[in-house]
Design a protein around this nucleic acid. Sequence first.
DNA 1: CTACAAAGTTAGGGTTACTTAACTTATTTG
DNA 2: CAAATAAGTTAAGTAACCCTAACTTTGTAG
Lengths: 221, 221
Amino acid sequence: MVTIPKEDYIKAVFTISFNGNGKVSTKDISEKLEVSNAATSEMARKLSLQGLINYEKYKGISLTAKGEKLALKILRRHRLWELFLIQILGLSWSEVHDQAERLEHHTTEFLIDKIDEHLGFPEFDPHGHPIPRKNGQLPKQPEVTALSEAKIGSSYKLVCVKDESKELMDYLTSIGLQLHTEIRLINKLSFDDSVFVQINKKQISFSKKIADKLSVSVIKN
Amino acid sequence: MVTIPKEDYIKAVFTISFNGNGKVSTKDISEKLEVSNAATSEMARKLSLQGLINYEKYKGISLTAKGEKLALKILRRHRLWELFLIQILGLSWSEVHDQAERLEHHTTEFLIDKIDEHLGFPEFDPHGHPIPRKNGQLPKQPEVTALSEAKIGSSYKLVCVKDESKELMDYLTSIGLQLHTEIRLINKLSFDDSVFVQINKKQISFSKKIADKLSVSVIKN
DNA sequence: CTACAAAGTTAGGGTTACTTAACTTATTTG
DNA sequence: CAAATAAGTTAAGTAACCCTAACTTTGTAG
Ligand SMILES: [Mn+2]
Ligand SMILES: [Mn+2]
Ligand SMILES: [Mn+2]
Ligand SMILES: [Mn+2]
């Protein structure tokens, strides 16, 4: 049986290894899901028995083919709900993630396909993440850099926000930064790796922690 | 804390006492939720401690004001979702109940208000049940009789189906019977209390069990 | 009014998912 | 490479919610 917590662990393994590479640590999962390491260890044992993850004690976790298939299904539900909530029901950027976090576990394939169709088979969610298709394929994202690695003087557009906390979303909204907004990199401070950018004619600075989360693609070099 | 099972118990108390009258029995709740009497007894103790129901051992259950307020909120979520799934996403009459049964527990007031607005503040759900308004008020239903109690020779229209099992919904759909469809009562058999009716020029018979579930209002006497 | 059946409750136990505390393994660093 | 620290696991226990079995209360039929 795949319960709701199990779905959350599987999704966590996928998203953590999607950015990083290969094996996922117990620690990272525990932090993401805000549970103890003990809980993650215990769950790893069970998911491994179910054939959803590869798990060798002390050696880290990776998804099996079966686990990955499941992860993609959950992400599909999550991301389609997010887009639906924004586009059809008018929720805001900062609200949709938490809602989708719950709805994703209670949506049949039939219903999510209807939502997909209603939205015209979109490829990206409101944060710029690719939406897995019905067949499990992931739309290819454009070539991106982290804003923290961008070149001084170049212009970019925001393609993906790799964090979905309400606080960050609200902040970005408040400064007028949305997906596809143009960002020009003015300067970097090597003291703390913060960046200075121009957005809608206003100059703004981001800490490295924020700049790391903003994936951008080049418009003008 | 109000958990999902607790919401289901509270809703069950409300809907059972809405048709019947006054106190609700442990038995009826257990049957509705498909759990043992023991589970219901145990839950009654807890809900009573929380001030959601009035409960005296062996004497039956009723909602407190606080419990009723909660029940109406849950019904609002359930019924708005049902209508939304049919009207906006094109699910069928027989599918929406089970979907809504799950979504109802994962919908914030903010989201359900958006859905309400999107649908134009409807008063009745796809089965003809009144949708509680944001303030907790229940729209008044038209004067209805059970089809099993209707008068031979009179014409009626279907106003409410008091059961939402997939099987019944599919059957009604298959014979072309929808909400607001005209039904003329041709005859009754006192042998088994079955009824003979005309729907869309076709003659059909219903067992008493089905006829009891069909609420109709008079068109022509 | 008694006795029997139906309804309701309590006791004891199972499952899932979580916690903290104690312990083990792996990694880093002087 | 040894010692210290970080990461990971196991053990023991808790909270919900459910079950079956045993028991108690209530309502009814004779
Ligand atoms: Mn999200
Ligand atoms: Mn329903
Ligand atoms: Mn439910
Ligand atoms: Mn309904």
